[in-house]
Design a protein around this nucleic acid. Structure first.
Lengths: 273, 273
DNA sequence: TCATCTATTCCGCATATCGGAAACTTTCTC
DNA sequence: GAGAAAGTTTCCGATATGCGGAATAGATGA
């Protein structure tokens, strides 16, 4: 990801570029010169911007002022970004219930550009792997069940745009070609859920249902990640059924507008069973 | 929180100020004029900055371009900020184990300036309330068990600074006066854990142990939040003991430096029991 | 329909930002 | 441990960059 060449102008853009750079490789941290090199900036410039970012609490300088990494402040601030339309709050109890009932790990995914992002995750007792990884993790939209469920139920125009953009990105991740992808999407739209389309992660399986808005377009996906044995022909329909029911509940809470009054009701208390 | 008056100069600072403003009230979103008013900026300025932020994916403009809110991109980026020294990754399995064993909710707290921030949280079956709230939530350092455990084990100099700064902030939240706070801190240092210092949240109790570095200073705290009945004199020592053991494990994984080689070993796989 | 409030574009001025050069510090090498 | 190399930080003048007043376009409501 080269942010350097052409466009990087304003100090805001440069600052954000630095933040993004720090976000990759945040475990290790980055040194001033590395940042300068990576972004085609001069050390003084990077230094000044970093200074500002540190003052603002977005970046922390390691002792001895050697390495820079993202600050906890940024984390705390941005944590609130992961709750669009109260989606996360609404889904939290549902996810807890799901992981307790199903004894599997539940994911809440939303779209972000050409990716899907994991908004929340509720662990089950079985250790699993997933594309998404942890909360905040990203996957190419279309890879993985939750991701695919969202893609399949995007408005047609957007769906086409995403497919066009993402096909090249999917090479070598199990998506063979466009025909295959479109077949998958059609099937997901048909049956209303996405189920272990491919055995991309050995031994792992998953199911996902979309959370739809009034127009029938995906705003999110609820998905289950588990091991192959726990998603056999017998159990799959049961899981799908439960997921569907909960997704419908989310949908209802997401559109809490009285058609007449257009008043966004505060309904978080009315626990849906 | 007025960021306006004196210092706001650079576009970077203004941009970050806008992000922070959007972070509050992110459920509802903010309009351009509101932002301008709140930050003492002119509408054109805010518009231009917002445009940049939207282009950079940090902010999303609601349909009809009426309201702005933080973008999922920011969330995804900042999620990595919540893993300093791999602390979160290291603690994840431990927290899962703890919440499964104790059947209570476990919190992972770290310091951020004069606050403590909730880095992670693993839910138990009992619904609880806490100061920290969700992941990313903040509390004044010293209020709540996890928070207090960190404060108590800060280097003396920093501790004093925090106490001085935070005492006024604690008015009306159960901290009566400085003497009381210092007594509490001394006791926590003495026994090595913080336990429901005050019944601030009716019906709720908690215990926390610090995660210490080599110098014996707190880098984090593991805490349990539960209801009063579940933390009686009988159970408390048991819980403390388990917490201590796990905290020690975290500590060991946090300092994975071979004293001679100074090589940061990648040890995440070596599951500590 | 008109009035009011809000969002967006334009543009000249002033300022905040840039980066070269150099001092200073840390880290590496022998 | 001394010298070299790389990295970090300060300084400062030129200029590009972002600022905000004013005017336009769009939305909202009476």
């Amino acid at each position: 990801m080269t942010v350097d060449d052409a466009g990087a102008k304003s100090s805001l853009q440069r600052g954000l570029a630095i933040l993004r750079l720090l976000a990759d490789g945040n475990e290790t941290g980055a040194r001033l010169t590395d940042i300068a090199r990576a972004l085609n900036l001069t050390p003084p410039t990077v230094h000044r911007i970093l200074k500002t970012l540190v003052e603002e609490g977005m970046v922390e300088a390691d002792k001895g002022s050697k390495r820079y990494r993202l600050g906890i402040d940024l984390f705390a601030m941005a944590a609130r970004a992961g709750n669009p339309n109260n989606l996360r709050d609404i889904c939290r109890p549902i996810m807890l219930r799901l992981s307790a009932t199903l004894r599997d790990t539940i994911f809440l995914m939303v779209r972000s550009g050409f990716d899907a992002v994991c908004l929340d995750r509720s662990e089950g007792p079985f250790p699993i792997r997933s594309f998404t990884g942890d909360i905040g993790g990203r996957v190419t939209l279309g890879i993985g069940q939750g991701s695919l469920a969202i893609l399949a139920f995007l408005p047609e125009e957007e769906r086409e745009e995403v497919i066009r953009f993402n096909l090249p990105r999917m090479q070598g991740v199990g998506i063979l070609d466009e025909v295959y992808l479109r077949t998958e999407i059609a099937r997901v739209r048909d049956v209303g859920y996405a189920s272990r389309s491919t055995g991309l992660l050995p031994g792992m399986s998953g199911v996902a249902v979309p959370v739809l808005d009034r127009q029938g377009h995906a705003v999110a996906a609820l998905s289950v990640g588990t091991i192959n044995e726990r998603l056999n022909e017998e159990r799959l329909p049961v899981v799908v059924d439960i997921l569907r029911r909960e997704a419908a509940g989310v949908c209802r809470q997401l559109n809490p507008f009285d058609p007449v009054l257009r008043r966004p009701a505060a309904i978080l208390g009315s626990g849906a069973a």
